[in-house]
Design a protein around this nucleic acid. Structure first.
Lengths: 226, 226
DNA sequence: GTCATATTCAAGAGAGTTCTTGACTTCCGA
DNA sequence: TCGGAAGTCAAGAACTCTCTTGAATATGAC
């Protein structure tokens, strides 16, 4: 290869790989990953996110700025509030693949999950199986997350039954149905608890181990309220 | 939530997100991304990779060590040589998604590609379309990469026609067929050049814009020689 | 054994990241 | 208009990452 062409190729590769590397650089931080996961449930303010992720407001703002500058989240300003939201379904897919690789590569993660969740019912874990549930008229899909998250995005056909409401027995559920409950995703405990609660009441309940983010990553659509 | 449970949850999140973040940290470097792309074609030695990626041997060794410690590549030692190879199809999927997000988020990348490749024939770019080609008996799938890469892994049914050999007219190809040519992947120029060459000889040639890595990421199997 | 070769290791200068702190800007309601 | 609240900005200490250099290790050929 002539020298000039080789140099041109080298510069091209440096540019492209350098630009691509900015994305994993933005993801290469504990707090930013957690913030992204929180954002993927619904748009949230900086304070709110900071409190939930256990960091200071200023620090959360800086991390969110990194994600926004990279295009992984977008901001909508309303008054003094800044609502951060996930930018693109492609980001969900990336996060799902990232988690898959991390779990297959680092057994510590699976061990930590087991230590935290105990012997967990694996439940329904694939997109196709979840679609069968939606099609089945004798099954009911329940969303165990807080109502605001259901309103922002939920799996089509799901009914909002927040765990808190379920705990305080605000719901009377017919006995004949098969209940399938989902929550935020694999690291969320709401659906596990809802399933346990429903079973204690003698109902047929199963966990769906996907949240709306995983649903979108697999190619699904989500509904919103209003 | 009681205080102890909240603390336990926080510690769990710190552990899990901290561990997951190690994967993007390993990917957050120009050279490591390029090395991974090279490795994904076939197992290669440190020297070889260092030369192709334009870094010193010691530096390449250190970057490869980072990838290996993270489990993204594996090493096989033969004599004084160390052959690095890609560890898992999940890694290919992650890289494909990473590139997709980077391109959708950073228009500079697309601009750099256009500047380098010119107005490029998009060719066939989906897994399904590629499978139709393989099934079509009047089409022939050609692999334009160097023979060693074909031998390490190629799309089933492909014939090895290295660009170098094609240039020196070592191949007599029947005129009646439709030729579909692939190479290393979207940032590789071999297939573009092969298609141009075949067309100049009056043959019906199209580029397939997937390499074996993208093929595997989409769920395909690959064949190897020997 | 000796030598050349492939790779890794170790130390250190320089650059980049992270988190805290306190100040600053902007918006809204009283 | 003022005060409070939400968010951002700026500077700096502590830490981590990167790349170079030269040495160390290990293997195979002679």
């Amino acid at each position: 290869m002539p020298d000039a062409a080789a140099k041109r190729k080298r510069r091209f590769k440096e540019n492209v790989y350098g630009a691509v590397a900015r994305v994993p650089a933005a993801l290469a931080n504990r707090h930013r990953l957690e913030l992204l996961d929180l954002i993927s449930q619904r748009p949230r303010t900086v304070q709110d996110l900071a409190a939930e992720a256990g960091v200071t407001v200023a620090n959360a703002s800086q991390h969110l700025g990194v994600l926004a500058r990279c295009g992984l989240v977008s901001v909508e300003r309303r008054g003094t509030y800044a609502f951060y939201r996930a930018a693109d379904p492609a980001v969900y897919r990336l996060l799902v693949e990232l988690r898959a690789v991390a779990e297959s590569v680092d057994h510590e993660i699976v061990a930590a999950e087991r230590a935290y969740f105990g012997e967990r019912d694996p439940g329904i874990a694939t997109y196709d199986a979840a679609q069968d549930i939606i099609a089945d008229r004798r099954a009911a899909l329940l969303d165990a997350r807080p109502r605001e998250e259901y309103e922002a995005a939920h799996i089509p056909g799901a009914v909002s039954v927040p765990l808190e409401a379920l705990r305080s027995k605000k719901f009377a559920l017919p006995r004949a149905k098969r209940y399938v409950v989902y929550c935020r995703g694999p690291y969320c405990v709401f659906a596990d608890e809802a399933v346990a609660l429903l079973r204690r009441r003698g109902l047929d309940a199963t966990r769906l181990a996907l949240g709306p983010a995983e649903w979108v990553a697999a190619g699904g659509e989500v509904d919103r309220v209003g």
